[in-house]
Amino acid sequence: MNILVIKLGAAGDIIRTTAILPGLKQKYPGSSIDWVTQSSYHEIIQGNPFIRKVFFIDKDKEKLASSFYNLIISCDDDLGACNLASQVPHDYLIGAYAHGKKPVYTPNAAAWFDNGLISRHGLRKANVLKRKNEKTYQELWYNIIGIPYAKQEPQLILAKKDTLYAQGFARKNNFNGKSYIVGFNPGSSTRWWDKRMSVGDTVKLGWEIRDRYPDSKVILLGGPEEIERNKIIKKRLPFLIDSGVNNSLGQFASIINLCQTVITSDSLAMHMAIALKKKVVVFFAPTSHKEIEIYDRGYKVLPVRGCVGCYRKECRIKPIYDIDAMAKLI
């Protein structure tokens, strides 16, 4: 039994989608599973013990076109991914594919794709359905594939070079076996602007953490889109240990792996922390908290005022959080 999983991005979505792999091995013992993604995401998928071979859509289309799979699971609504799903020879397909120049999806995958950009109902109804959804992403895909869901975990394998990088970072900042290390990721990408915590609330929460846990070491996490924002935060919270914003995906994951607890937005840092089995305190606003599986290791925090699951780039009512209550969860 040869299976091909198509999941091109984004990085956090790739990580959470790996949770289907243990179930596939359970349902199809002895099967071989290959994965297609983008070459820029190789660090978060290579080394996975459930995967035989990783292909890159930007390099391996010809190889894939001459391959054959008994089952293709196509998890992306991107037209390039859908075209690939249609072009690779196969017996059976679950998920999105191309019909002419249009992305469509198999009826058994409606529980996920009805809620997204290629929904047969249109985007407005899709957002309504997404807000009504009560199941996590992992549970939805297990139901789609036809495997009993038992909170099977995602996987994120750290390369030795990245683990060594994180060990060097720990030595440089005087971490020891007794250090309680908290990762603090208040930002996010700009796709959903109000996923990120305001700078004001970030500073309040930072000082609450400092006051409650004076012996902790708090690492400021972030990515390239947060250069100026993190400079402001670091200036106002001088005790933070800045991990930088230009780490590779593997380096970023290895720094998160140093932490006991990660406070984060619904972002890549969250998906990495969950896959690395960290305690998480995740705050939500425009995106669905119900869709996120945290495996009973932490807390989901909703704003006391503001949008929840509005799916707008910018919330009409800016989220405000109970900072004192959030700090107590750490």
Rank of each mutant, 00 (worst) to 15 (best):
S86V: 12
G122F: 06
R212Q: 12
Y41Q: 02
P148C: 00
V104N: 03
V104K: 04
L205Y: 03
D201T: 06
H121S: 09
N230M: 12
T163L: 15
I144Y: 01
I51W: 06
F113S: 00
K25R: 14
F56E: 04
N247V: 04
D60N: 15
F239Y: 15
E43N: 09
K195V: 03
P286H: 06
R316N: 15
I292G: 05
Q38R: 13
G309Y: 02
S39A: 06
K63A: 12
A85G: 14
E226R: 01
T287R: 03
E208P: 05
C82Q: 08
P22D: 03
I15H: 00
Q138C: 13
K277S: 13
P186W: 00
D162F: 05
K102L: 14
F284S: 01
Y28A: 09
S267E: 01
A150L: 14
M326D: 04
K277I: 14
A159M: 13
S198V: 02
D13V: 03
K132S: 04
R212S: 11
A111I: 07
N174Q: 14
P107D: 09
I3Y: 00
I323D: 00
M272Y: 04
I94P: 04
I20E: 00
R212K: 15
K277Q: 15
I45A: 05
D34W: 06
L4R: 02
V203F: 03
D78F: 11
N230L: 08
E225I: 10
S32N: 14
A98G: 13
A111S: 14
R124G: 10
Y299V: 09
